[in-house]
Design a protein around this nucleic acid. Sequence first.
DNA 1: GTCAATGTGTTGTCCTGACATTCGGCCGGG
DNA 2: CCCGGCCGAATGTCAGGACAACACATTGAC
Lengths: 245, 245
Amino acid sequence: MTGPEIAVDRSSPVPLYFQVAEQFAAAIQRGELAPGDRLDSELQLADRLGLSRPTVRQAIQHLVDKGLIVRRRGVGTQVVRGEVRRGVELTSLHDDLARAGRQPSTSVLELATVACPVEVATALDVTAGSEVQHLRRLRFADGEPLAVMENWLPLHPVRLTLDALQARGLYAILRAAGIRVRGAQQRIGARAATGAEAQMLGERRGAPLLTMTRTAYDDHGRYVEHGAHIYRASRYSLEVTVAER
Amino acid sequence: MTGPEIAVDRSSPVPLYFQVAEQFAAAIQRGELAPGDRLDSELQLADRLGLSRPTVRQAIQHLVDKGLIVRRRGVGTQVVRGEVRRGVELTSLHDDLARAGRQPSTSVLELATVACPVEVATALDVTAGSEVQHLRRLRFADGEPLAVMENWLPLHPVRLTLDALQARGLYAILRAAGIRVRGAQQRIGARAATGAEAQMLGERRGAPLLTMTRTAYDDHGRYVEHGAHIYRASRYSLEVTVAER
DNA sequence: GTCAATGTGTTGTCCTGACATTCGGCCGGG
DNA sequence: CCCGGCCGAATGTCAGGACAACACATTGAC
């Protein structure tokens, strides 16, 4: 067992452990490393790649966190059986659709500065009534309505414009403004569509909707966005992968 | 800033980094470390606790993964603003309810060995038609119907019994049998209840249901369970926390 | 007074080394 | 033939050190 060909570039600014992790992930995706296959031991890999064991270990840990491989003490490291699917990371719907080969488009229903409602204020950890940007968008995939997304953002960081919102996802705009979203808490549920919602989404009144509220924080630990979204359950579902330890 | 009192027990079999992480998590939960508070630097902590920096770092990384704190290079480490809620880990509904102070109970509708359906076979990575255990349960919280859960398990590992299923969650049974569930892939959606489903759950036909399918793997990378679950959307929702890096 | 350069403190990455723990197969005894 | 103990191999944990990259505040130049 020598495994896939992996080479690191020490002159690259990309961390070595990340280079290794990416190349293993690619090999698994290509099928070069089949489900159930054993990887070389950490010591062998370190030797082969000219890296130290901690660096190799960090790379492997990265893949374990993504649910691609499994480690067993005293035994070794194996690729998880069955096909792996990408779970929800901190991407916007826009990017998700684009990656799935579908054409995203957006109609901005509302974009204004408003006094922050109480529920949103508690989620964003700001004082109720303070000014926040409020945003409501109808999202399409291949011209077909898919979701209604409502977002609130504290004013400080970035000024949203209509043009930007029609061309890109919210998270891409935030990233471009230097805001690094690091994590989020999400609540996923379902409910029946109201008449108005049904009309916007092209469903019947009472049709099941998938709901998600999300509060995202940046690397200051500050909440930068709160969203309440509804999706047509007939056209959309969420994927989540969980890995422990 | 000296932070909360933390002491490690070197004679304990619990890893040092885990002891540290748990005590910080507890301090945050107690409010002793308030949202936005800065932690001591890694070097200060290492010095104060008599540990090496890698160990302290591992503890902090653990908390970052759980979405409790945020790190910024060149600046420091802070507690995430706002209250944090526990996300879906690899626990069963049974445990979740018990922790929330509600009384879980289970009615086993079906428990048999069957030929594996094709969709399940692909998910579990076994050959279609091979024998698997099939399980269907109606779950209650405080005596009120909450969910219908259907599971399939490859035969090998553990033999399920009716008694065990009524007293404990599926994951607890698996754990007791020495199976260590390490990760899972989940798909979350919604749909309308059929007449039969509505009757079981005490909802009206067409009422929105939250659906989740989950495939869980153990530390061999083998899939050990596939489940298709429906929840009353009016009584249940899922929480997910995501953290990057 | 404004703006650029510098300095300090912090996390990010990477290294070497060591021992503990666990698993699973080998081998020998009964 | 079966079973138990031994042992090698792999991951898990921990130490201590070094330098890089980065953010922020301070200082200095213009």
